[in-house]
Design a protein around this nucleic acid. Structure first.
Lengths: 259, 259
DNA sequence: GGAATAGTGTCTTTTAGACATTATGTA
DNA sequence: TACATAATGTCTAAAAGACACTATTCC
């Protein structure tokens, strides 16, 4: 390829090289990039989120989303995956990670101009998390309780609200619900329970079954049955997630029509 | 509030203050935040996007999205609005701005670790843009042509693809289409044309009319009529956008079922 | 009046909600 | 056998696609 360049193009490459040699980002006011994780799971029949209690300044002692600074040799995506691995060691392969939004109000972090790229993660029923280095404690809390009661660090309340809205919306038109289930094989009732918990509604079992079964490529039947969780109940068929990326037409959460 | 603090809490505040006094972001490897804008409009019956030809290094001479560095006294949102104002002076009040995604692969910018927060903007039929300081030229191009033919700077092709997908999706369930129209009053045919151009499909006029009119709070009839654009055509009723924030049930773009 | 688009109405198919009915595994 | 949930089926209502038909305005 090089040998085909004419003089003008070589000059251009030289000029670009020359420009970069004298370019120094350090000249400008310092900025930094962090990543924050809204890690959702289902615990005790409630939608829960992982919070850590900050062990260091700033906002020492407050509950916050897990996260940290992005290193200059990694993408934000990689930083998010790294933090997720540290904070929720279990069942990483089955977890789901998606960029939510970037938060960048000046003054959102007292240490300086620090933007946070927030991610949403969905993980299966998890073991209890372990607190990291600069962390007093790490625990799952019901999202509802967090939003109503907690005094959260930075702008993390806003991030959690946005993340919750994202998860609720995405269950409608993407096959994310199985990401909450710890077993690759699950019953339709278990799947329905995920929807009910995340959306905070009751769904008609018959209609839910008909709907999810009608989505081509969403559920695949597998051998075997799961015994009922309730005494006297009938055992149920098992399914596993298939390969579709969108649900069409979508499932709708009751009450979403009034915004 | 202060007078209610006990000694322990005062100590905590002092400690936080002390911590911040010695904290210096400059200690860490330099990072920087930029904003890039995918400004969509409709020109010559096609969906178009604003590109600038870079006048300076890096990527000098290549076509790129308008954008620039975020200042430390402003939010990314404000930076985006500032850039939008500079690049598309016309009809700012009617334009729409929404965060798209943050791009942060190391190496995406040769100047160093620079993350870009991308925004999508929708603007009405615009005057020709004027090139800025470090810009050779600023022009609208049909999105289709850009994606098929152009050699774009940085990762801007990916941003444009993501932005296009976002706009197409959002037309389904939000009342964004009027943002493309330069007049606050418009006909249903004009509105339908927006959908057809953005989605790249033909829509049945009767069914489209029925659908948008059935969405409560989407369209409001106004006095007067608009003469036909075609000779011999019937004049049509005028509407203006109302106050709803979501369209339920959504309009669906034909062909979206197969992903 | 003719042309061309605006606007209305109708028929059919698909999908969702409500709910009755049957099936099956467990105590 | 009784019970509880799983799974299926039915009826109805809502919504979308196809398309015929009427209305209005401009030439």
């Amino acid at each position: 390829m090089i040998q085909e360049l004419n003089d003008g193009e070589l000059d251009e490459l030289d000029a670009e090289e020359e420009f970069l040699k004298h370019y120094d980002l350090k000249k400008y006011p310092a900025q930094a990039v962090t990543v924050d994780l809204a890690i959702f799971t289902i615990r005790n029949d409630r939608l829960a989120i992982l919070l850590i209690q900050r062990g260091d300044h700033p906002e020492k002692g407050k509950w916050a989303l897990p996260g940290g600074f992005v290193n200059v040799h990694e993408s934000v995506e990689e930083a998010a995956a790294r933090e997720l691995k540290e904070e929720a060691t279990l069942a990483l392969d089955k977890s789901y990670l998606e960029q939510l939004k970037t938060y960048a109000n000046p003054g959102r972090d007292p240490r300086g101009y620090i933007v946070s790229v927030a991610y949403v993660a969905l993980i299966p029923k998890a073991d209890n998390p372990v607190a990291g280095d600069d962390t007093n404690e790490a625990r799952f809390f019901a999202v509802e309780d967090v939003l109503s009661d907690f005094d959260l660090a930075f702008d993390h309340r806003e991030i959690i609200k946005d993340g919750l809205a994202r998860v609720r919306a995405k269950l409608e038109y993407t096959p994310l619900a199985p990401k909450f289930l710890d077993d690759a094989q699950f019953t339709i009732s278990e799947l329905r329970r995920v929807y009910e918990i995340v959306w905070g509604v009751e769904l008609n079992p018959s209609n839910f079954r008909r709907k999810v079964q009608s989505v081509k490529g969403f559920l695949e039947p597998v051998e075997g049955k799961r015994a009922s969780q309730v005494e006297g109940g009938r055992a149920s068929d098992l399914y596993c997630a298939s390969d579709v990326t969108t649900i069409y037409p979508p499932l709708r959460q009751p009450g979403a029509e009034d915004n």
